[in-house]
């Protein structure tokens, strides 16, 4: 058995999204079985199946935050707090 990752795309401008994974003996069976597992009620109008062996996994070491660099993360909350303070002071 092989494992396939299933991606579905709805009609229109939506992008493909990961729907889940699937076990099947080969690609042809995967295509057949994926319909019942993931798109029985028209959840997608297009489907991609990717054999998991073809997925390149990112390096966890590189992904992990190496140090506290919160000063580089700007989610706007500091600006919002400052503007609120200025509004209240006015």
């Amino acid at each position: 058995m092989r494992t396939y990752e299933v991606f579905l795309k709805k009609a229109g401008k939506e992008e493909f999204r990961h729907a889940g994974s699937l076990q099947a003996p080969d690609a042809e069976m995967a295509r057949l079985l994926a319909r019942d597992a993931y798109s029985r009620r028209g959840e997608g109008s297009e489907m991609w199946l990717v054999d998991r062996i073809h997925i390149i996994e990112g390096d966890k070491q590189l992904l992990a935050a190496t140090a506290d660099v919160s000063h580089r993360a700007n989610d706007g909350s500091a600006v919002a707090a400052r503007r609120k303070r200025l509004r209240n002071d006015a």
């Binding site: 699937l22 076990q23 099947a24 057949l32 079985l33 019942d36 597992a37």
Partner: peptide, 11 residues
């Protein structure tokens, strides 16, 4: 025999 086949057969 396996989950995916179970779903297909019941469908």
């Amino acid at each position: 025999p396996f989950l995916e086949e179970d779903l297909a057969f019941c469908s």
